[in-house]
Design a protein around this nucleic acid. Structure first.
Lengths: 168, 168
DNA sequence: ACTACATAGTTCAACTTTCAAGGACGAGTC
DNA sequence: GACTCGTCCTTGAAAGTTGAACTATGTAGT
């Protein structure tokens, strides 16, 4: 290994890697845009907001602490504050104080929010299917899963607990 | 089950599919965030803006029509207008009128913009390598490329012949 | 030439995201 | 208690994005 700091010749991508990288960027942005539009049209909110409702719907008593929700949705607490404020305005989420920690807040899914989810989930799953799973072979689905897990492992921001949900 | 316009029960995702879908969302958002931060820090712009400069750098005479650039970067013309305005303010891009079509505008990469690219490209490639290619086997890279191409094919919004020969 | 419509790009308003700052509370130490 | 420090969450301003409306120009049909 040569020690030259910034001046080391960069290892550019091979042709194969470059094609794959372009395909990755192309496909992921197309899918993201597609789902964003689908949900904006059918559920009146962007994909990430929908994801928040889903997380809440699967939590015990349909509620999560803000920080917990932010962590599982991979967004900053600031962003979550704004998002929950918006969802609250829609009547789909409500805040509730945490009795054991007065700094804390729960976000909880209202019955109205649950109803939105019930109404729109089938369409959303259909969109994901149509874009992804109905086009891939079972082997490809397995491959994709494995590749994504490898990627995520390498990117896990220094948040040791993220790996250890069973330790909480 | 709810019966709305659609008479068929929704086909939910299998456990495998669900795991893969979660891994996909997790990994792609982590990577996107990572590259956005890396480029914001090292190049002073988000990933998508960097992509615009790259596109321009590879175009003949380092210029592209706005619509063409928007298409190849997969963003709306509106978004591009704003982005180019910002990049113009940085001195990295310039607009130029199109002689053959007075409605048209070229976006062109300035020497200053080229310099930013030269300075920051190695670090960006390194980030992509470290996050993706250095962690995947050659087989996985090939698999990923193929999967992404399949995905993109199903989502291509403006490829008339690809989509609906049998639909309408 | 006239009409009608399509295309290129920008602009405005509403919304979302980011970043830095700040207020409130909890936990540890003296 | 008082001090310090870290955590929980919010806020406000700046930056970015979206979708619709708009201007100007090109194109086709009559």
């Amino acid at each position: 290994m040569v020690h030259m700091g910034d001046t080391t010749a960069p290892r550019w991508l091979s042709d194969d890697e470059q094609r794959t990288w372009r395909a990755y960027l192309h496909a992921t942005t197309l899918l993201e845009d597609h789902l964003d539009r689908q949900l904006q049209r059918d559920a009146g909110m962007p994909h990430i907001y929908y994801g928040l409702l889903v997380q809440l719907s699967q939590a015990p008593r349909r509620r999560l602490r803000m920080t917990e929700l932010a962590r599982s949705a991979k967004i900053t607490r600031s962003r979550l504050s704004h998002a929950v404020a918006r969802l609250e305005k829609n009547g789909w989420v409500r805040r509730e104080e945490c009795p054991s920690d007065k700094r804390g807040q729960f976000a909880l899914l209202t019955e109205e929010g649950m109803e939105v989810l019930r109404r729109t989930a089938p369409g959303h799953v259909a969109a994901v299917r149509q874009a992804l799973f109905d086009r891939l072979s079972p082997e490809q689905v397995a491959q994709l899963g494995e590749i994504m897990r490898v990627m995520a492992e390498g990117l896990q921001p220094s948040d040791p607990d993220a790996d250890l949900p069973w330790l909480r």
